[in-house]
Each structure stands twice: as structure tokens, then as C-alpha cells.
Amino acid sequence: MNAKLETRDAGEAGIRIIPVWDPLVRLIHWSLVTTIVLNGFITDPERKLHEYVGYAALALVILRLVWGLVGPRHARFSAFPPNPIAAMRHIRDTLSRRSSLHLSHNPLGALMVYNIWGTVLLLCATGIMMGTIRFFGVEWVQEVHEAAFTWLMISVGLHLLGVFAETWMSGVPLVRAMVDGRKRVPAGREAE
């Protein structure tokens, strides 16, 4: 028994390194970040480039949705089903410091993921509509587009807050996991 514990904890101070995010998930994540920054703050909304970047974002989200159906275990929707009750439980457990570790997105993070994808899709849909003759100059389309962008910025802020809070509480550096794909789980913590 003693011997067993010894080897289990033999790594760098007992940290288990578990590959979680495959290269495609990471590439899509950071590409989507780039498109959001580009279209939110850099490109001129009147210009063609804004449209190109918007289509790129649309393609990235669609690709991620396909990957959510056929991809490896942690990338699949089944690994992070949208479940508000589980999300509430996760908040409660986190506050009382007995939350379990999730190798894929945690239930609260999962809601944010779906929210961000949905918001980007809404932005793309209204953006494409604005470019069509039928909806050109139609006010509500533009208003929805702008409201969606505001909501996206709020969501990104909450997403970052969630990532840093979870990193702090669980001791798993999440940003690093999204860069090199591996979660470093501290010794003695069970992960599901």
C-alpha cells in the first residue's frame, strides 16, 4: 500500500498531467479569440474585411460543433451537457470548496461555452443579414447585431473571471491547459 502511494505521487510533486484538449479544440479556441478581437476592435464594420473575419468566426463555430459530435471524449458535447442544475451545484460546491474536478468543461463553464457559441452565431447571422439586399438598412437587425456584441463582451469578461476563479480554487492552471492541452491535476484530487 505504502509502495503504491509512493509511485503514484512520483511525478513533479505528485501532479498528474492529463491530456485533455486536442489540437483542434485549442486551435479553434484561439482562432475564435482572434476573430472576436479583430472584428470587435480592429476592423472597420463597413469594410469587406469585417465580413471575411465574420465568416471565419462562423466557420470556426460550425467546425467546433461538428467536432463536438465526432471528436474525442473531452471535446464532445456529452462531456459537458448544458445543465443549469449541475451548474448551480458547481457554484455551491465551489464556494464551499468541495467541488469535484472536471477534465472537460465544468458544468458552469459548459453553459458559458454554449452561450458564447450561440452569441457568435447570432452575430454572424445578423451580420450576414445586414449585407443582404432584403435586410439592408433594416434597423432591428443592426440593433440585434450590436446588442449581441455587447452581450459577447460581457460573456467574455465572465468567461475570464470564471477561468481565473476556477484556476485559483481547483489549482489546475486552465489557461495553460488551453495552450498545451494538458491539465495538471494536483495530487490527491479526483477528476471526472
Binding site: P23, R26, L27, A59, I62, L63
Partner: peptide, 8 residues
């Protein structure tokens, strides 16, 4: 993965 993203 890079090729897939580029293709998409």
C-alpha cells in the same frame, strides 16, 4: 488540425 482550420 491546422489544415482542417485552414480548409474550413
Amino acid at each position: 488540425a491546422g489544415l482542417i482550420v485552414a480548409n474550413v
